[in-house]
Structure formats: C-alpha cells, structure tokens
C-alpha cells in the first residue's frame, strides 16, 4: 500500500488517489505552429525512466485536487509531493 501525501490533506492511503501519468510531458503552446512530429511526441512518446519519475496524481476520493509527486519507479518510494504550480 502506498502512502501518498496530498499537499492539501496530508498523508492518505493509496486507495483515495487516481494516477494521472507523466507530469513532464508538456502540451505544445496554444496558437503556436507545431510540427506533426512534435505533436506526436507529446501524445505518444515518453521518457519512461527507471528511477525518479515526476507524475500527476488526483486526490479523487478526498479533496479532488490534482498535484505532482516525485516517485521512484523501481522502489515505489515517494520522495515528495507538491501543488501543480510549485517546482518539484
């Protein structure tokens, strides 16, 4: 069981959360010219690291806020969590 620290509610059990994927993926800016390759990279391609991974979580059965977590994909250790605006 993972214990995840919601930046707003504190430590809660994994059961209250939903995963939201790689948080380093950045959508190309609206209104800017974007090549097909850049767009496909954004939609489909991932770094998929073994080790530290920055990712989105959603406290869906709690405060319903999205936030970021830094977690090790090999050990499942969670280093820290932050709000979306903060640097993690």
């Amino acid at each position: 069981m993972l214990e995840i620290k919601c930046p707003y509610c504190g430590k809660r059990s994994q059961n209250e959360f939903a995963y939201g994927g790689d948080a380093t993926v950045k959508r190309p800016n609206l209104g800017e010219e974007v090549s097909t390759k850049d767009w496909d990279d954004f939609v489909y391609y991932r770094d998929n690291p073994r080790g530290k991974h920055t990712e989105y979580w959603h406290h869906v059965s709690g405060c319903r806020q999205w936030f970021k977590a830094s977690r090790d994909t090999a050990t499942h250790e969670i280093f820290n969590t932050s709000s979306l605006e903060e640097e993690i």
Binding site: M1, Q14, H53, R71, T73, A74, T75, H76
Partner: peptide
C-alpha cells in the same frame, strides 16, 4: 497496478 513501475512486484490494493 495503475502507475509507472519497474518493480517486479505489485501492491495489495
């Protein structure tokens, strides 16, 4: 399990 993982073991939930 629902989150990226390279661990060859899962979680009870």
């Amino acid at each position: 399990d629902g989150y990226n993982s390279y661990a060859q073991r899962g979680n009870l939930p």
